[in-house]
Design a protein around this nucleic acid. Structure first.
Length: 260
DNA sequence: ATGGCTAGCCCGGCTAGA
């Protein structure tokens, strides 16, 4: 059984105790993290090692930052999307384990449709698409996890009317996302859940979580043939409760595969 | 139309997130 998780922790140092407790509770093989908000030299490698995990980290001061936490050593670690997109921000890290490629990404937010940051988001996403195209997705197992900052369908949005055409929900962003899936990837959560109201992010403000004012923007995407082996997919809402939660909850996926 | 919370930065009010 292969268990893979993606989680935007919104600061690894604030969330460290939660991450360690999560590793103990779920015992994932792979945990992809986004928004570390710390440079590599301040990443808590040792605490995570003592929990029995290795860390591959692309850090950045203040903003962004991604990591892949793994039970076994990750091989062929690569930072960023070069040569498909040259980004000053720390948003992509990838590596292999047991013959499977794991790609962890933190897609830019985009701020507002039509803004400069929105254009950056679209350009960045096309770079991601080119990176994915460089793999033989339909023949080799690839698992892409992360915060995509796109709610692909209205059922992924708590109030589709008020979000219509807005950032994270605009047609052009949704088209980009479906183009990515069309390369041969499946959103494994939707294999196991058809209903709306299932979110991975809730606004900190105005009791967003208590009112379930959320969006589903965090995904585990897998090669279609691999997705057929997905036996479980869920969002751990418990992690959005209690003292000082991230505004995102972890997304968990299990595959009926031996892991070396 | 705006702010609402949270985190980081370097110490009070910004930027950024989504």
């Amino acid at each position: 059984m292969l268990k893979v998780v993606t989680w935007n922790v919104n600061s690894i140092n604030v969330r460290l105790e939660r991450v360690l407790a999560f590793l103990d509770r779920w015992k994932p093989d792979i945990l992809m993290l986004q928004e570390l908000k710390c440079p590599e030299e301040k990443f808590p490698f040792e605490a995570i090692r003592q929990a029995g995990y290795e860390s591959a980290v692309l850090g950045q001061k203040t903003y962004n930052g991604v990591a892949i936490i793994s039970k076994g050593p990750l091989e062929e670690i690569q930072l960023g999307m070069d040569p498909f997109y040259e980004d000053v921000a720390a948003r992509v890290i990838r590596g292999k384990m047991g013959g499977i490629t794991f790609l962890c990404c933190y897609v830019p937010n985009g701020q507002e449709v039509g803004s400069e940051k929105f254009q950056y988001k679209l350009n960045w996403f096309q770079g991601l698409q080119k990176l994915v195209e460089s793999y033989r997705v339909n023949e080799e197992p690839i698992i892409l996890g992360g915060d995509f900052n796109i709610a692909p369908e209205d059922r992924d949005v708590h109030d589709p009317k008020s979000w219509e055409g807005k950032i994270l929900c605009s047609k052009v962003e949704r088209d980009h996302f479906s183009n990515l899936l069309a390369l041969g990837l499946s959103d494994v959560f939707r294999i196991h859940h058809e209903e709306g109201g299932m979110f991975s992010w809730w606004d900190y403000r105005s009791f967003g979580f208590q009112r379930n004012h959320g969006l589903r923007i965090d995904f585990v995407l897998a090669s279609d043939f691999l997705a057929k082996l997905c036996t479980h997919a869920s969002i751990d809402r418990e992690e959005r409760k209690g003292e000082r939660p991230s505004d995102h909850a972890p997304m968990i996926a299990e595959f009926n595969l031996p892991i070396k």
